[in-house]
Each structure stands twice: as C-alpha cells, then as structure tokens.
Amino acid sequence: MYISKELADLMEQSEIDYMIDRMKAIQERPGNPMGIDIQTFGGAAAFYSQAMPWPQFNTVKGIGEQEAERLDEILEFYRKRQGRCQFEVVPSKTHPKLMKALFDQGYYQTGYHATLYGEPRACETGREPITIRELTADEMDLYAEIHCLGTGLPISGKHHIADNNIVLYDRDGWKFFAAWVNGKPAGVGVMYIQDDKASLTFATTLAEYRNQGVQQALLEKRITEAHQSGCRIVVGQAAYASTSHRNMERAGLKLGYTRGTWVQA
C-alpha cells in the first residue's frame, strides 16, 4: 500500500469520520451540555464546542482549494458562536489559493502533525507481564482516571471525561481497551471502525508504566482488532517524531503525511 492522493484522502476521511461520530455522540447528551455544533462546507467539516474551547474540539478538517471560496462562511460559523478555530491542512489538499485565503484572514501555520497508516494484521497482543483486554461498561470511570492521569489533566475533571466517553461505549464502531501490568491498570487505548477504515483515536499510559511496552501492546491489540473486523487500513495520528510516532512505526505503521496546523494571529 503506497502513498497516493487517493490514499491520503482515505486517511484524512478516517479522521473526519471518527471526529464527527464522537462529537455527535457528545452533542446528543441531554441538553447538549458541551455546546457542540458541527457543520460541513463542501468537503470540510467544522467542529465547535462552547464548553471545551481547546483546539482539538474547535477545528476545521478536510479543507482544500474548493473550500477556500467558503472561508468567510466557515469563519462566520465560529463568529456567531463567539468561538475561534484552527484549520488542519493535509499536503494533498494544499493549494496557493487556500494558503493565501488563510493568510488574508490573519492565519499562519504553527506546526505539523503526523498521520500514519498501515494494513491491519494479526499481531501478538500482549507479553508478560502485560495483558490487554476490552473495557466493560462499568469500567469507564477507570478509563477516565487513566485518561486524566496519563495526559496530565486534573483528576477533578474525571467525571467530564467519563461522561463524554460513556456515550461512545455502546455506539457502533467504538472500542475501549486497557493494559494491565502485573494485574494493575497501566494504560488505555481507543479505536473507531467505520466501513473498512480503523482509526486509532486515543491512547495514554500512566507515568510509572512508561517505557515498558504498554503502548506497543495497545497498538498491536487494536491493529489485530482492525484485521479481525475486515478493515483494509488502520490510521493513527501523533506529534511528529514523538514517542507515539515511534511506537506506531515499531508496530508496522508508516508515515502517510504531516498535516499543517493554522491558527489566527
């Protein structure tokens, strides 16, 4: 499976698919407490959250040359909600017309983020003393705790993480896994499957269990799950040249592209 524009489009679409489903699930919580809104503009999807102002929840994915003409509409979508957004631009959709339009609106590129891909296969899923298994519904509080501690979020916000993920648990395509080291919870990994695409959507390991192969085991478990589900591609994202990036390459994934992140000055 060699890189091409068609494959790059498939990788980007896998990320858009899981983000739409994730945000819709949170939006459908009674009263929409996170203030979620989603709107499409051609091939671009704009995501907004009033209660979660962080860039990953207020971002535009899938934008290209055609959507450059609708940039004013996209920005108005956020202005009406008194929000700000970032734009994620993949290399296959980079075009001078789009770059100039973003620049004219006061946007500039602040960095890159890596997207990796591979063909699903059966892997060895766990090596002593590490075991991997799918979480049960009554363990989502444990998931939220590891999510917070592993990413440096305050544990006081654990219930928000739990509430925003329990709505995904019984939703088609979502799977939550935990890694255990000597019988103690050490890390978590999440994936989403739609059609024949598998997305590695989130993973973290508790600090005291890092550099022990936990993330490698979680990756191999999810890649195997994608294989068993009949997927033809598995896609993940990571900060470029980060530990997560290296772990994905060790698991057999390879770099598809680095997408640019554009923010307003």
Rank of each mutant, 00 (worst) to 15 (best):
E220P: 00
S242R: 10
Y192G: 03
G62N: 11
W180R: 07
Y257V: 13
S14T: 11
V188F: 14
Q27Y: 08
A239T: 15
W174G: 06
R84Y: 07
L142D: 13
R29G: 00
E225N: 02
T151C: 03
A217L: 02
A44K: 01
F177Y: 13
H160P: 03
S199F: 01
A162E: 08
N164F: 00
E145T: 11
G236C: 14
R133F: 04
I74G: 09
E128F: 06
K221P: 02
Y2C: 12
K158Y: 00
E12H: 11
E128R: 06
I223Y: 08
K197W: 04
T94W: 09
Q39L: 10
W174I: 04
R210T: 09
A8E: 12
A178M: 13
A114T: 13
A45N: 11
L206M: 07
V181S: 03
P120K: 02
F103K: 04
C85R: 01
N58A: 05
S4D: 04
I146L: 04
S242D: 11
A44I: 02
A122T: 12
A144C: 03
G152I: 06
A122C: 13
I130E: 08
Q228F: 08
S49H: 05
Y112E: 14
G236M: 12
Q56W: 11
R79E: 14
G62P: 12
K80W: 13
G118E: 03
N182D: 14
Q212H: 05
M191D: 03
R171A: 15
V90I: 11
R81S: 12
D196W: 01
P55N: 13
G83M: 02
Q105T: 06
A162T: 00
R133G: 12
V188P: 00
M34V: 08
N164L: 03
P30Y: 05
T115M: 15
Q215C: 13
G213C: 07
F47D: 05
A51M: 10
R121C: 15
S199C: 05
E76N: 12
Q264V: 08
G187D: 13
G111R: 11
P33S: 11
A144W: 03
C85Q: 07
G35P: 01
L153Q: 09
L218H: 01
R127D: 10
R171D: 15
G260M: 11
K5V: 08
M52R: 08
D141W: 02
R133D: 13
E145P: 03
D138A: 03
A265I: 01
S244W: 10
A239Y: 14
Q237W: 09
A137N: 02
D141N: 07
R250Q: 13
N165V: 02
A162C: 04
A122F: 08
